Amino acid sequence: MAETDDSDKTEEPSQKRLDEALQRGDVVKSQEVNTWFVMAGATLVLMSFSGGMSRDLSTTMRGLIANGWQIRVDGPALPHLFMTIGGEIIAAIGLPFLILIIAAAAGNFVQHRLVWSVQSLTPDLSKVSPLAGLKRQFSMQAVANLAKGLVKVVLVGAVLAALLWPERKHMEALVYADPAALLPFTASLALKLMGTVVAMLAVVAAGDYLFQYRQWYEKQKMSLRELKEEFKQSEGDPTIKGKLKQIRQQRSRKRMIAAVPKASVIITNPTHFAVALQYDRGMPAPICVAKGVDALALKIREIAGEHRIPIVENPPLARALHATVEVDQPIPPEHYKAVAEVIGYVMRLRRAVARR
């Protein structure tokens, strides 16, 4: 089968098409959104935990340096030393590191729900094809990535320059400042820079996500042929459905014809409609055992004549019953009175015939 040209994909994707894309791991993903979440998490860590981390780590290192001459490193003492230092470092950076992991994961979760798919891991020869690689280099995605890179470099560079330029004299004075003053100044300046970068990247991430979503949605669009094929797969081939419907109608007709001899009376139009009703004493209401129009109505009347079933002409009642009652179902209450008169007439007629 020939591959569908992208220019033919003019129809909106069906929900089935979108679900299949999700199952094979084809989802909307903007790397800029992931970058923004990581940067925001790093800014939160710097703002909330930098002081605690620096104090805990400096205490550990200060104690290690101050008491280094009496720390034993022979035999089992060395592994114990490594475990102690490692535990203190992990305790100091564990929570900030966990926040960064959560931020990195959140960057994916906000774009799409969790997907388990091995199809994306399946080797694809098109990824190593020189021609396919060349097309990717000059694709709309490549142009968008280049534009994003230039925008980020220009914006971030301009903002950093605007923030650092007023601080140039303070930064020059740091050469002669007390080393203890370097960390607070550096942390404050870094926090200001990262906060500004996060605010700018939020705009870039939002724009990139909208672009990626549009690209992904356009890729999921379908051609008319694909829509027809999907309809056949989900709803069935119309030809086969028509054939099955015809078979069901034939079987239903045979069942109705076989049930006509059980009828108590046939109500007709007289030529276009025929409704066969069965009523026995003790039944709450008469039941329709067969109904039909034209040829089927004629067949019902023929079988009724063969089995000497009374045929009563009542055009309004025949049309009403044919429209409102289903086969093997009792007649509606609104027709009780009219049908009761017909059945009563039939019973009186039978008693009169029996007396003769």
Rank of each mutant, 00 (worst) to 15 (best):
A2E: 14
E3H: 11
E3W: 06
S14T: 15
K16E: 12
E20S: 08
E20C: 03
L22I: 10
G25C: 03
V27H: 00
E32C: 02
E32W: 00
F37N: 01
V38R: 02
A40M: 00
L44Q: 01
F49S: 12
S50D: 04
S50E: 05
G52F: 07
G52S: 13
M61P: 06
M61H: 03
G63M: 02
I65E: 03
N67P: 01
G68I: 03
Q70W: 03
R72Y: 05
R72V: 05
G75T: 01
P79A: 02
F82W: 08
I85H: 02
I89D: 04
A91Y: 09
P96H: 03
Q119C: 08
T122N: 11
T122V: 14
D124G: 04
L125S: 11
R136F: 03
A142T: 07
N145E: 15
A147C: 05
A147L: 15
K152Y: 04
V156T: 11
V159P: 07
L163T: 05
L164C: 07
R168L: 15
Y176F: 14
A187V: 14
A187Q: 10
T196W: 15
V197C: 03
V203I: 14
A205L: 00
A205C: 01
G207K: 05
Y209P: 00
L210E: 04
F211V: 05
F211Q: 03
Y217M: 11
L227D: 01
G236P: 09
D237A: 06
L244F: 13
I247A: 12
S252L: 13
S252F: 13
M256T: 09
M256Y: 11
I257P: 05
I257L: 15
V265Q: 07
N269V: 03
A274W: 09
V275D: 09
L277K: 06
Y279H: 09
R281M: 13
G282E: 06
V289K: 01
G292P: 02
I300T: 04
G305I: 08
H307E: 09
R308C: 12
P310K: 05
I311H: 08
N314T: 08
R319Y: 05
H322I: 08
A323C: 10
D328L: 11
P333I: 10
Y336F: 15
Y336V: 08
A338F: 10
R348E: 14
R351D: 13
V353I: 12
R355S: 11
R355N: 07
